[in-house]
Amino acid sequence: MQLNWEVKKFSQLTAREVFEIFKARESVFVVEQKCPYHEIDGNDLKSLHVYAVDDDQQIVAYARIFKEENAVTFGRVLANPKYRGQGIGKTLISEVLRVIAKTVPGELIMIEAQEYIQPLYAYFGFKKISETYLIDNIPHVRMAKKVV
């Protein structure tokens, strides 16, 4: 499948794009993972939103990138369930890292990764830097990578 990637600040998103992004995130993080929490937060306003849509304008894959105090981070990483198992996750992380290298080269990248997905991030050179801890009853680890 050929994906056309979009990279937009929150202020550049159309109402439809915001709706599709929030719908996809709620579907995965709140409903599928059974985590009743405030999925929409202030980080959305300062993030670069990286995503691809299908012909019906449904989100295929999504992540958001934003600056923290001493690093850049990305999160809300998702692949639409109907597209999983096709390498979409690797394609998404490749795109996220390309955007980070272009927009904030040389920055340290720090992420909070769900524990089960560590191998995907390790594939891209991320190293585990913490013990396992819980966020909304889901095991996570901190991982880091320096981008040149």
Rank of each mutant, 00 (worst) to 15 (best):
R84C: 02
Q57M: 11
I65G: 08
A113S: 14
V148D: 12
S130E: 11
R98N: 09
G42K: 10
S11L: 08
V30N: 10
D54A: 07
E20F: 05
I111K: 14
L45E: 11
V96K: 08
D41K: 10
A61W: 03
E26I: 11
K128L: 02
V148L: 12
K128G: 04
K9L: 14
N137S: 12
A144V: 13
E32Q: 05
V28L: 09
A61C: 14
E69H: 13
Q58G: 03
K8S: 00
S130M: 15
V50I: 15
K46H: 06
P36C: 13
P81K: 04
L13Q: 08
E131H: 11
E26Q: 11
H140E: 04
I65T: 01
M143I: 05
A122C: 01
G42A: 09
K8F: 01
R25P: 13
N4T: 14
A113R: 04
K82A: 08
C35N: 05
V104N: 09
Q57C: 10
V7P: 00
K102D: 13
T14G: 09
Q58T: 10
N4Q: 12
K127V: 15
E131S: 15
Q86D: 02
Q58N: 15
S11N: 10
M110E: 15
R25W: 07
V7D: 07
D136I: 07
H140D: 01
L97V: 07
G125C: 05
D56N: 14
I93G: 00
K34T: 01
L78Q: 10
D41L: 01
Y62P: 02
E6A: 05
I40M: 13
I117G: 07
I40Q: 10
E107H: 12
K90F: 05
F126G: 02
F22H: 04
I100C: 05
Y51C: 00
D56E: 14
H140S: 06
I93S: 02
E131Y: 11
F19C: 08
G87F: 09
G87C: 03
C35R: 11
V31K: 12
V50W: 00
V60R: 03
V53W: 04
P119F: 13
L48A: 03
Q33A: 07
A144C: 08
K128F: 00
T91N: 09
I40S: 06
Q12P: 08
L48N: 01
Y37V: 08
Q57P: 14
S27M: 10
A71S: 15
K23M: 05
F29M: 01
Y51N: 00
Y37P: 02
Y121A: 02
